[in-house]
Amino acid sequence: MKIKSRVIKYGDDINTDVIFPGRYLEIIDPNEMAEHAMEDIDTHFLEKVKNAKIIVAGKNFGCGSSREQAATCLKYAGMSAVIAKSFARIFFRNAVNQGLLVIECKNADKIEEGNEIEIDTEEGEIKILDSGEILKVKPLPHFLTKIIDAGGLMEFIKMRGENEI
């Protein structure tokens, strides 16, 4: 999979409550969830998404609640991938299950707000197109990429068409 886009950048410990505030948890329609994505940390997020489909962040992205709306709202807001120095574990699982590409990259700092980058998941590379620099990343385990490729756990299970994971 290759994804090319400009990036939106955030810092460390971006938690689930600022990605998708608790007051909206009663929403179960994903398009409606998207309307509140990142609302408590970046009121311009939905405008920025028009030109940038990749989030780049620091350590512990998605810490806090188990709410999968945090991953769902980003996907339905138009995000193609989240790159972070590290992810909180439940968010990471939820993102994979929602079919949102998540990439751990220790050198995420090297990517700057507004940079255009290209992710190549097969090569395990992120290329910063502005500078030409290439960042190596650890590829996801094969069975996780299969879930993401299917578009999420739901589609994956339906595709498998059998009563097991």
């Binding site: 188990s66 939820n94 739901m154 994971i165």
Partner: peptide, 8 residues
């Protein structure tokens, strides 16, 4: 875990 995973 998340809701989708719980459904599974």
């Amino acid at each position: 875990i998340g809701a989708t995973e719980m459904a599974s």
